[in-house]
């Protein structure tokens, strides 16, 4: 099945407060708000993988860029 979901649980008072502040904001549910916030948090942390090119490759690319007049 496409788009699998799972659940998290938060204290009811917190839920109510969130519900309150998202009124008139375009967020249609606490769930859509939590998804938004969590995506933001996780994305800011995602680490860049180690660079995928070697020194030689880099040299060759710089040479090409020089030939084309970009550097």
């Amino acid at each position: 099945m496409n788009g699998e979901y799972t659940t998290v649980s938060i204290p009811k008072p917190l839920y109510e407060r969130i519900k309150n502040i998202i009124k008139d904001t375009g967020f249609t549910s606490v769930s859509s708000f939590v998804i938004y916030v969590l995506r933001e948090v996780v994305a800011s942390y995602e680490q860049e993988k180690i660079e995928v090119f070697s020194e030689e490759e880099k040299k060759a690319i710089i040479e090409k860029l020089r030939k084309l007049g970009y550097i």
Partner: peptide, 25 residues
């Protein structure tokens, strides 16, 4: 224990959050 409310989020997002937790020490 206070009352809890459950919220649906995409499974993949949940897993990313889990990874985030592990890596944040």
């Amino acid at each position: 224990m206070g009352e809890k409310v459950t919220i649906e989020i995409p499974k993949e997002l949940y897993e990313k959050a889990q990874k985030y937790i592990q890596e944040s020490g």
